[in-house]
Design a binder for these strands. Structure first.
Lengths: 112, 112
DNA sequence: CCCTTATTTAACAAATATGTTAAATAAGGT
DNA sequence: ACCTTATTTAACATATTTGTTAAATAAGGG
């Protein structure tokens, strides 16, 4: 799977999305902390972390018996770059829509 | 599923990702054109289009017997906004990594 | 060396996703 | 009304995903 698509696949799952947001907020955390936060089992979290690792969304570092996980900023940049690559399409479209809305207001103004 | 996560889920599939890129490149297209471009069956494409619609990634417009599909720019903006919301995390991290790399170069310079 | 803690792997069941073909629906032309 | 074209829905098989519990692995302490 392409880098970008596997990143999207990884983030489409709620558990994994929450893990990524948590790691961005709190920084590097041991797997155990992510398990305690979650309602699902350790093995399930462990497999989610593997999916995130394989998608390049997180990296793992050993410290004694613990495994510390952190978000790889490059993965976020990959997504950002994709939106930027297509900005010409969507930003222009949104502006045009806003303008059309304004023009409509002139014809049939609302309370605000 | 949250808006953002269902957008990610929709884009994690290659067929759907390709459809979205095609529609951004060429603009509004009838379902039939998307079928002819693809190696998979009409019904399969039709179901992919439904997933994209339900995720808010595309919108459908009827014109006679044809159904014209187009990417909804808001969906792209939703993704862009998410990366921007977290830019403080990933951009700073990347800069720090670049700086660390530079510092290392000073200690053990390479051929370039 | 054994015990505890931290984490992953294995084995399996249930749910979800994706493709296929055949049938249904809808619009338009003759 | 009937036929053609465009698209979707239905029914079904298969593959993938995701959760569970039990067992395996790895590091460190006594």
């Amino acid at each position: 799977m392409s880098d970008l698509r596997s990143v999207f696949a990884a983030l489409s799952d709620e558990t994994r999305f929450d893990i990524v947001e948590r790691l961005m907020k709190d920084g590097e955390l041991p797997a155990g902390d992510l398990v305690s936060d979650s309602t699902i089992s350790g093995p399930a979290i462990s497999r989610h972390l593997k999916v995130l690792r394989e998608a390049g969304l997180v990296e793992q570092r050993a410290e004694g018996t613990r495994r510390l996980y952190a978000v790889r900023p490059q993965a976020l940049k990959t997504i950002s770059d994709w939106t930027i690559d297509h900005r010409a399409f969507w930003e222009v479209s949104l502006n045009r829509m806003a303008a059309a809305l304004e023009a409509e207001e002139d014809i049939c103004p609302t309370s605000d």
